[in-house]
Structure formats: C-alpha cells, structure tokens
C-alpha cells in the first residue's frame, strides 16, 4: 500500500496564528523547473498592517525579557530546527533546486546561525555599550536598546538561511519583526514559522508574510508604526523609493545586500538605539 500524500496549506504567520491572506489571494510556488508545488498565501497591505499591529503588541513584552532569556529562546529555535532538518532539506531542494548536499549545508548553517546569534543576546550590550567618564559627579552609562518594530525584506535567495540571517539579529535584542519572505522560496519561511510557533518565541515577535515584496514593501516602508527597515533582499525592488518613503517617519534603513547577509554583531547593533542615562552621585 502506498500512502497518498497530504499536501500542506501554506499560510501567513501573524501574531502567533496562521491566517490566510485577508484578501483570499494565493500564488503558485513552483520548482526551479516550473512544476507546481503548492499554493502560498499572497499577503495584502492589510495583512502587512495586521502584522505590524501584532509586532507592536509583542514589543513591550519581548523587549522586557532578559537577554539570558532571549538567548535561550533563540537556542531553542535551533534545537527544534535540528529536529526538522529533513523537512527543510526537502523544501529547499524542491523550491531552490538545490542538491541534497547544498540543501543540507544551508539548513546546518541556518541552525548554526541561530546558535551564534543566541549567544549574543546577553552580550551585545556589553560590546556596544559603555560607561562614560563625564566631568562631574554623575553616573553615566550608554546602552543599546531595541529600536522597536522592524520591517525586513528577506533575501530573495537562500530561502531558509537568508531568512534566519535577517530575523535572528533583529529579534535577539528585543525587537519584533515583520518579514517579507522570498517570493520564490516561501516554503521554508512558513515551515520556519511552524518551528517558531512551537518554540518559546512569544506570539507576534516574528511575523512572516509571503507574496509579492514589491507590493507589500511600500506599505511597510511608509507605515508610521514601523521603526526600522532592513532592505537586505530589496536589491531588485525600487528600494530608493522605499528609503524615501521610510524617511517620512525617520526610520532607520539598512540598504540592500548583494548576496546573503553575513553573520555580524553590526546587524544587531544597527537595529538598536543607544540610550544614555545620567544620574547624580553624592555621598552626602
């Protein structure tokens, strides 16, 4: 007896739930050779809006957790990903046309990326912040804090590793994120969402939209409740226009990358704000 496969319905990931697009739209995800794999939800501007609301709602709680706690949450993601390696390898092989070895390498790298960034959660403050020797009787310290809600255009390639490379550095400091997944390779984004949903990441910390980045990105770039914009995967879009739209509310904007974003603590600190606190000091 052969088992008749049950295809998965790929939906959006917003506020910890998996809704269809409010627009009811889907688009076909195909293999690199054009064969049908699945229908993915095609997010609308209203889905983007809902995702920003979910991300904002999650910000206070997530940014209020300790770095040690967030580090463990990120590490837990790596643990769960490890357990589902085969699924991700399969998806990458079908959507990205990778060899098993290449797909495996990418999944392993994605796992390692979570582990690497997990370790930064309780350390980036020490690297990016410092006490300041001001001339006067004041305690004075500068520390980075999460910027807020970050909208991210994920790399168009490297469906899984690209996504992890932009999400992990943003959320480890306490930001929440709305990410537009690779249009051509959305399956690992949704599968990653399933991992996130079953890990310890609070609802709304990561929100994943699939569909047309060209259509959704302008709404995110101009959204007044988005604090920063990572254009990592926007090289093929009209990204200068996105940057101009972002300027209306003075969003911090990271320009497009030509390839896969490197793992670096600079990606972490870019999405932080340095806060400097002064307090008087006196014995009497």
């Amino acid at each position: 007896m052969t088992h008749l496969a049950i295809p998965k319905t790929y939906k959006l990931y917003i506020g910890g739930a998996f809704p269809r697009s409010e627009s009811g739209r889907t688009y076909e995800v195909t293999t690199s050779k054009g064969a049908f794999i699945a229908n993915a939800a095609k997010a609308s501007r209203k889905d983007a809006r809902d995702a920003v609301v979910a991300a904002r709602a999650a910000f206070s709680g997530w940014s209020g957790t300790t770095g040690y706690n967030r580090g463990q949450v990120l590490y837990r993601i790596a643990e769960l990903l490890e357990g589902r390696r085969a699924q991700f390898v399969d998806e990458l092989r079908s959507t990205d046309g990778l060899t098993e070895a290449a797909a495996t390498k990418q999944v392993d790298s994605a796992i390692d990326a979570w582990v690497w960034y997990a370790g930064w959660a309780d350390k980036y403050l020490q690297v990016a912040g410092n006490g300041n020797p001001v001339s006067g009787p004041y305690f004075n310290i500068s520390t980075p804090e999460p910027t807020g809600v970050v909208a991210v255009i994920a790399p168009a390639t490297h469906g899984l590793l690209g996504l992890v490379s932009v999400i992990a550095p943003v959320i480890l400091s306490g930001n929440t994120v709305v990410v537009v997944a690779s249009e051509s390779s959305p399956l690992s984004a949704i599968s990653l969402s399933e991992v996130l949903a079953t890990s310890d990441v609070p609802a709304g910390v990561v929100n994943v939209l699939t569909g047309s980045a060209a259509e959704i990105a302008p709404w995110l770039a101009s959204h007044a409740d988005v604090n920063a914009l990572d254009l990592a995967g926007a090289e093929a879009l009209e990204w200068v226009d996105l940057q101009i739209a972002a300027a209306d509310t003075l969003k911090r904007v990271l320009p497009p990358e030509s390839g896969l974003p490197a793992l670096t603590v600079d990606r972490v600190t870019f999405f932080t704000e340095t806060k400097t606190v002064w307090h008087t000091k006196a014995l009497i």
């Binding site: 001339s135 500068s142 509310t249 340095t274 806060k275 400097t276 307090h279 008087t280």
Partner: peptide
C-alpha cells in the same frame, strides 16, 4: 523611549557622553 535620560539633573552635556534620539528625533 529617548536617547538621553537625565535623572535628578537635566541638560547636562559632556564630550564623552553620547547624545542623540530615538524615532523622529
């Protein structure tokens, strides 16, 4: 959500102390 917080003082500046804003500041 502000870049410089003065506690029990205000409008103090020092070259060693970073200054700048969040959001539209």
């Amino acid at each position: 959500r502000a870049g410089v917080i003065w506690a029990n003082t205000f409008n103090k500046f020092d070259p060693s102390s970073p200054f700048g804003g969040y959001k539209e500041s």
